[in-house]
Design a protein around this nucleic acid. Sequence first.
DNA 1: CCGACTTTTCGAACGCGTTCCGAAAGTAGC
DNA 2: GCTACTTTCGGAACGCGTTCGAAAAGTCGG
Lengths: 234, 234
Amino acid sequence: MMGGMSRSLAPQGRTGRPPLTSRAQILEAAHRLIDRDGWEKLTIRRLAAEIGVGATTLYHHIRNKEDLLILLLNDHVDRIERPPLPDDPRERVVVAATAMHDALAAWPWAAEILTVDGFVGLLDASALWMVEAVLAGAEGCGCTPDQAVHVFRSIWYYTVGEILVRAHSAHRRPGDDRPVRREPSFAGLDATRVPHLAAIGDRWPALAARDTYGEGLRAFVDGLLGPRAARGDV
Amino acid sequence: MMGGMSRSLAPQGRTGRPPLTSRAQILEAAHRLIDRDGWEKLTIRRLAAEIGVGATTLYHHIRNKEDLLILLLNDHVDRIERPPLPDDPRERVVVAATAMHDALAAWPWAAEILTVDGFVGLLDASALWMVEAVLAGAEGCGCTPDQAVHVFRSIWYYTVGEILVRAHSAHRRPGDDRPVRREPSFAGLDATRVPHLAAIGDRWPALAARDTYGEGLRAFVDGLLGPRAARGDV
DNA sequence: CCGACTTTTCGAACGCGTTCCGAAAGTAGC
DNA sequence: GCTACTTTCGGAACGCGTTCGAAAAGTCGG
């Protein structure tokens, strides 16, 4: 059985109709489309039209749009240059987490896939140094491997939340007084029931617009790796 | 046009065609639909059919589906009973944040609206006690009002991230080997490039499945309200 | 009673992601 | 050359959220 040998090189044992489309071609066209029209215009149908094939053809090369975005994201993350990691393990966690955050926040459409099941497991090997650095830093602060995973996950939740909430901000159009969604009135709050909130008043939007990721991250790392990593369980 | 008798008796001064549909009626039908068929089946078209009106009619009573979900969420949160708040301000932050988390995590479709712009401002007054409690607790620990908002936002990001990531977990179907999305191989990692990750190996999924929201929250609160709230800026 | 005005209703249509299934275009064995 | 098999391609269709514009059904001022 199977007498043939050598002569590999070309897909020689290949049977079936030869493909016109390749995944590389799809990714390239996606980049072109995004650069030309913006990423909101990246749809399966437009992408197929850009390549010149039927829309449903793409589904033989990618599983769905979510996977296409993950491929594009990996493309991007691969090109990120690694910042120098400090010696102090705690500081290494901060730097690595910030690198994760910045890499993702720079891709507007990262928000659409950040929460897919097992996201970290879908990253290219070239992106895993960020995860590794967080784990290493945590263990360098005395964590067990299991505790280090907990540290990573906590920071990951915080990072994902920050990116998602901020990605959905500033999308509101000004002149729009349709039913519901009254423009939230931070000003007219009941000062007896929610005094602190009322004291903030309409300064809330301004405060919420501030970028405090870094501050929060440092606080979180302080709490997680604290003066003593002696939380027995986990 | 429709058979339904006019039953007018206009509430006086009211001009225009009398409405057949009310927002209360829509919300009631939505609840019915969710209870009967599950919340994945809550679509604008099905909801309209449940009421017996055209799909586009709903858009005169709700702005869009997102707003419908916010209305439903407020309905739910209103019914939540407030846990007793401890005296210790730091503990009050933990209890209030946990109440927020649990209220949201209990609604599977909360994940679809958690990140809308200015979410906190869209909550009913009856839900704001959770925000208030966090602010009050933070200020009780020596924070300025501005710092308290920062504390709330940080905890909010962490909470949103946790809920969103977990909501998207366990959606994968088992027998599915289409292009891309290889089942992530935590086992075969390069132990020289990512030693800590490789050491975890295939235990990652099990560790990631643990519920560690509470632990992470406590650590975050420790870091934010720390042994001393003397972080000059913010 | 008659327009003018206002509000609600809804059919038609758009673009979206995705599934289904038959047609097309190759190879392998006879 | 034929048949079987395998893989790719793509038109048709589905249900989705949403927009548009015309028709319906009231009130109001004459």
